[in-house]
Each structure stands twice: as structure tokens, then as C-alpha cells.
Design a protein around this nucleic acid. Sequence first.
RNA 1: GCCGCUGUAGCUCAGUGGUAGAGCGCACCCUUGGUAAGGGUGAGGUCGUGGGUUCAAAUCCCACCAGCGGCUCCA
Length: 713
Amino acid sequence: MSPAAASDTIRITLPDGTVKEFAGATTAFQVAEGIGSRLAQAAVGAKIDGELTDLHAPIERDCQLAIVTEKTRDGEPDPDALMLVRHSAAHVMAEAIQRVVPGAQLVYGPPLETGFYYDIAFPEDRPLREGDFEAIEAEMAKIVKEDRRFTRYEMPAAEGLKKLAAEGSKYKIDNAERAIAASGSEAVQLSWYATGEPGKNWEDLCRGPHVPNTGRIGAVKIMSLASSYWHGDETSDRLTRVYGTAFFKKKDLDEYLDRLEQAKARDHRVLGKQLRLFHIDEAVGQGLVLWTPNGSIVRKELQDFIGAELRRQGYTDVFCPHIGKLGLYKTSGHFPYYAESQFVPVMEREFLKGLADDGCSCSDLSNMLESGEIDGYLLKPMNCPHHIKIFDSQPHSYRDMPVRLSEFGTVYRWEQSGELNGMMRVRSFTVDDAHLFCRDDQVGEEVQGCLSLVKIAFETLGLNDFRVRVGLRDPDSSKYVGSSEVWEKAEAACRDAARTLGVKVSEEPGEAAFYGPKIDFVVRDVLGREWQLGTVQVDYNLPERFDLSYTGSDNKPHRPVMIHRAPFGSMERFVGFLIEHFAGAFPTWLSPEQVRVLPISEKTNDYAAETLRALRDAGVRATLDDGNERVQAKIKRAAEEKIPYMAVVGPRDAEAGNVSVRAGRAEGPRRDAAGGVCRRRAARARRPHRVGRGRERDGGDVVVRPRGGVHHR
RNA sequence: GCCGCUGUAGCUCAGUGGUAGAGCGCACCCUUGGUAAGGGUGAGGUCGUGGGUUCAAAUCCCACCAGCGGCUCCA
């Protein structure tokens, strides 16, 4: 960039449409000053033609300019401003770390949605530990207090590379080379940011932009340490990733930390334990979920719900064993290509004995496993091969199609130990699976049907915060089976179907299954991590591999197309997600316990038992808390256990044949004749309802009277 | 699998070289109370597992196991 000639007039258009003219180069800061000193004070950066830049960056051409301040006009923190403060905080942290740990080499330190990180290579004899955080934060506080200006300077690529070579940082040289390659020109300038004066203060090769000075970083905290790999490549250098977050105000940081605490309270692992929904036991094994009675109710209700939809759509149930011969998975392509993410095969005694007699060593065995020349049974990693064999067990006419086989099929995958996570990532899970075998001309309609199933499920449960991902082939990978023609056909089918959903769809190369492209429904957990739930996958490949066929109207064999689909994905992950979605307070039809009967004292225990019987006869999941406690304590416990309804019964209720119904998550008592409430509520509790309509809390079948009025009849 | 952190009563956590603690929950007793905790008494722990250092280890060191955060992977 060359400075504009002094005579050039620069026209700057502000967001409100006003145009400011300047004789020669200016900066966003000067523009802000021209508008008002308060704006200039609040300014932390600028957006020039939509691109975030430094506040003091020279403006040398006509442009659209927006001044970036801490908060947007409606008082919300400005995401661009947060990016600036976090990127700047990353620099300050890096400087502090290099003070505390001499020899630490910087690699890469970008801002994130919720903070920032810096990847750093520490000397082998001096790794970073959490115990260092305090010292680093103290150094950071000093740098912030010094209020040093972020100063950008540039130099030509060749000169910059020389400078980096002299400094001896292979990571920064690599960054520079990548920047040069990305720009596609050797003529590009490399930029540095000094935290203060170039040549005197700490500096870092960096594209920017930053806040004007370190004093703008109001609150910063180092959050955690993690291991990472250079370029994300696990065979490359192992780096230490230091996570932190920063805000302009201490209050914003405190609020953020507070929100994190609250998020932890609704973490499915925390609630799962509190509400006794599931259990993972060391003695059983890592990543193996035990469904306790409460969680089993939630799961069973969901299965019944989806099962009813499946019958409506013409699916038929099948059941299959959990293992299958290796040959089956060689045909499908699961083995040996995905051997490292499967449990090792179960081998027949005779086969093992034969190997031993042949003098097979452990390393021979290992090699045979690796190459796939092994006989035995595999714990199934997917249900499709079994279902394919069911389809193939008899001839099919084009008139039979589509064939829709469904099964809650349990599969087993050897996930890396560091990946396991509560119910979200496990080693054994049950897919609400089905495989559709259809004609070419039916693919579109069948995919639509599958998508509508996902929509019904998501709408019923009030899940509306999700994104749709179309997973496509990674053109550079060889892990996929099938020819590119069939892939293109399948990818087009997925694209077209996803478009009809009417929600935002992102296409992601490399996210396809190995046998075909897919449409995934992706949600975030309470900690912001993404998980794939429902999925619909079009597959032209497995029918080919298994040589499936049906007889067409021309009396010739034709190849069916397969669709794999699972509206929930896996029962484990889906219920784990639902626990967080509802914060443990399930809608009544899913609640493990729907009504708890609470006698006022032991004097009404008999009437309470009668009430319990009436509820249970009506099909309501109810229990009785006849403990020797005051009803207040019983209510508190029931509320903590997130039970939707409490039936409080005392002498007055017993005399009148009433119960006092209390909605556990709403306020105040409600009453009605016991039988009426029980029967109607039971009928509703048995079938799913859409949540969010408030029908369950103030439904018309409960007579609500003023609290003062209920004592008199 | 990798790096860091964590592991003490059923749960949540305190204790950091010298005889294991609290609250909740549980059991029993008193209390029989009308909408988010009535009172008392008591039981309950090889301090994740295995080694080592020490007169002495829950505490220090090593290895392993498991959990958490992230990375990598993800059919």
C-alpha cells in the first residue's frame, strides 16, 4: 500500500449513510474524533468495507466505515470488539508466558467465540502446569496496567522471513510461509504487532487486528491447558494449547464464569447422577452406559413414540444378534479398514487353536488382525449388514419396494479413551436404526419421508436450535467405497432433499460416511460442543457390494438403493442431549415419575395409598412419599427430583375425596376431584405432547381456584 | 492415544507427614405438621489401585486405573 497523494479526497461512508470527506489519508480514530470525543474514547477498532481492522490503521481510499465499540447500540457486547480484545489478550498472555517460561516458542494464537488460545511449544524439561497460571496472570496484569500501545509494522516477505530465520522460530517461519502462500504473491507484506515500541517491547508476527492498547483489556483469565498437534497432525510436533478468555469489563467476565457454572449444573452427567438416569461403572467398562430404571423409562417412552410413527409410515421391525462373522464386514467394507475403531474380533476356539498349532505368535496374530486375514466374529459396528441380509433372504419385486426394516440396534465401537464423554460418546450404543431399500425413482420421496420423521421427533420435543449438515466426500481421501458416479448421484439426492427442509444447511466435504453422503442434524450441548444426532444417509454402494437386486417391471434384476436413517441417532446420545435440553425437567410423558403423592401426615397415609392406587390403575407413573416428615420437606424433595406433579393429600382432601395437585415446576396448589384428575391426566400422560404450549401446566382439566377458596366447599 | 487437572462416606466437598471430618442422604426415636428443609440419636470410609521414601503416608515420589477439559479420531 502506498500513501495516498495529499491532494486526493477520501470519501468515507458511515453506517447511517453520512459521507465524510478527508483531504488525504486518515484513520478510523480520527473519524471517530470528528464525530465525538465519547465515540473516540469508546472505539476499539474499525470495520472498513466490512473488514475488521485496527482503530489506527491508515485509511487511504474511499470506503464504508463502521467504528467498533465495546457494546453495540442495543447495549450487547459487540462480537467484533470481543474478537479484538481476545486476540490482544492472547498476545499479552504469550508475552507473560515467555517471561515465566523462557524458551517457550509461540506457534499460533487465534481468538475464539468464547475466548482465545495460544499454541505454544514448551521446552521438554519445562512443561506448563496449571500451577503457573497465577504467575502468568500476574505478569499479564502488569502488561495491561502499563497500557502499552499495540503497534503494527510491516516488511516485505523476503525481509520478514530473514528476520524470522535470525530469530530461529520454525513455527513463525512456517506461519509466514503459509501467509505468503495463501496470498499467492511473493510481494506480500508480513506484519508484526509490538506491544509497545517495535524493537524495544515484545512483538509477534501477526495479521491483527488488535485493540489500540493493552489497557483496554479489562478482564482476562487463563482457563485451561490442553495438548494439541502442530497443524492438527498427530504425527507432528506436540504443542501445549493454553486457553483463556477476556472481556472489557470484569463484570462481563464474572457473568461468563457464572454462566459456565450454571451450564455445569445442567450437564447431563451431573443431572444423570442426581436424577439417577444412568450409571457408568468402572467394573463394567469405560463408555458402557447402564440404563438405570429412571433413564430406561425416558428411553422406552421415546422408543414407543418413534415406533408409533414408524408403523404409520410402513416400517416393519426386525431383530438381530449383536455379532456377525467377519466375512460379512469384509463385504460391507467395515473390516479391516475401520479395524482400529472396532472391538477386536471374537475368535472361535478351534480357529485360535489352529493358529497356535501353526506356531502363530502374538505379533503374527496382530499382523493378521491388521491385514484382515482372520476368522471370527465381530461385535457389530453397524446394523446395516444384518439388515441387508434380511432383505436379501428372499426375492423382491419392484412392487414390494420400498422395504423399510427398523430396529433399535445396539452397536459397538472402540472409541479412543480420551474421547469418551458421559452418554454423548460411548463404546456401545443403540441406534434407532432403519434401512430402506427402494427403487431409483423412490429415493427422493423416501429421503423426504425420513426427514419428516426427524422433523416430527424434533418438533414434538421442542428442539429448534440445531443445524443441518450435508456431509460430502473429501475429494482427497481414499477411505470411501464406490465409484464417483454413484457418489455424485447420492450427493445430489441429499442436497436436494436438505434444501426442502427450509432451514439453514451447510455442506461439508469430508463429513460423509464411508459408504455414502448424509444429512445430519447437529446440536450443541451445554458447554457449546457440537454433537450429531439424527442422520439420513443415501447409499448406492452397499447394495453393490452385497449384490442386492429386485425384479423390475421389465422382469430383469435391478439394483436397489439403500437409505440408512436414525432420527435420534443413538438413544444414549439423544437422551444425554435431552437431559440437558430439559435441564432434567422432562415433559410429563417422558418423566420417569409423573406424580408423587404426598400425605400431609401419617394420618392420611391410607388415603394417600388409595390415591396412589387410583393413579397407577390409570397408568400414571406415581409413587408415594409417606415418610415421617413435614409436607414442605416432601415438596422440596419432589421439586428437586423435577417431578412434574405432586398430589398433596390431607384430612380435608380425604374427607372430600379430593387431591391438591401441585405442578412441581409451577406455583401454587390446584385441586380437583381425585378421580377426574387422575383419569384425564393419565390419558394425556400416556401420549406425547409437544412441549412449549403450556398445556401440561394449566390444562383445562385442572380446576384452578384461588388459594383462599379451596378450604371451603 | 496425547497434554494438563482431578480421584477422601451413597452424593457434594474440607483435611496436605503424626489416631479420618462436615453438610445432605440413610437407619432409629420424638414430633403428626396443609404447599421448597421440624428436632434428636446413630450407622457408614482398606482416603482410586499397586509399589517406593519415611520411625510414621490420605498427605511426598513412581507406575497403573478411572473421570474432567482440550487435541486427534469419529461408520
